[in-house]
């Protein structure tokens, strides 16, 4: 169980880091260009959240290559194995959708919290 979770965390690292990069690069840009932060950044974060959701929906998380590797090395693959693969994919997709919602939350927070600062 534990190393499945470890792998899942490895997959999740990528969108989280993307979020941090977006926010991190927006600050120096703001200092440089002085655009209306409160208007633009939430939109960008929101759209990135949607993109993350779509990536979660469409990306197969390496399952196709995995199955082809299994066949290449003459290992066996049952229907149960296939179901397991599908289940894992589904869980990863849900995780990515969750991260998309996290993006929405961050956008929302930026929109509301920033005027108070």
């Amino acid at each position: 169980m534990n190393d499945i979770n470890r792998t899942r965390i490895k997959y999740v690292v990528f969108p989280i880091i993307a979020l941090l990069i977006i926010i991190a690069t927006s600050i120096p840009l703001y200092l440089f260009f002085h655009f209306n932060y409160r208007v633009y950044i939430p939109i960008i974060v929101f759209m990135s959240g949607i993109i993350i959701m779509f990536i979660g929906a469409w990306w197969d998380f390496g399952a196709k290559k995995f199955i082809s590797d299994v066949f290449k090395t003459h290992m066996e693959l049952n229907e149960d194995d296939l179901e397991y693969v599908y289940k894992q994919q589904f869980i990863m997709m849900l995780i990515y959708i969750g991260i998309g919602f996290l993006y929405f939350l961050i956008a929302f927070i930026i929109y509301l919290v920033l005027p108070l600062l």
């Binding site: 390496g62 290559k65 590797d69 194995d81 693969v85």
Partner: peptide, 16 residues
């Protein structure tokens, strides 16, 4: 060892 790759460790439920 298929379990070495990231996808492998996610998708294989037994020793491979």
């Amino acid at each position: 060892d298929l379990k070495k790759s990231m996808a492998g460790s996610l998708f294989s439920n037994k020793e491979r």
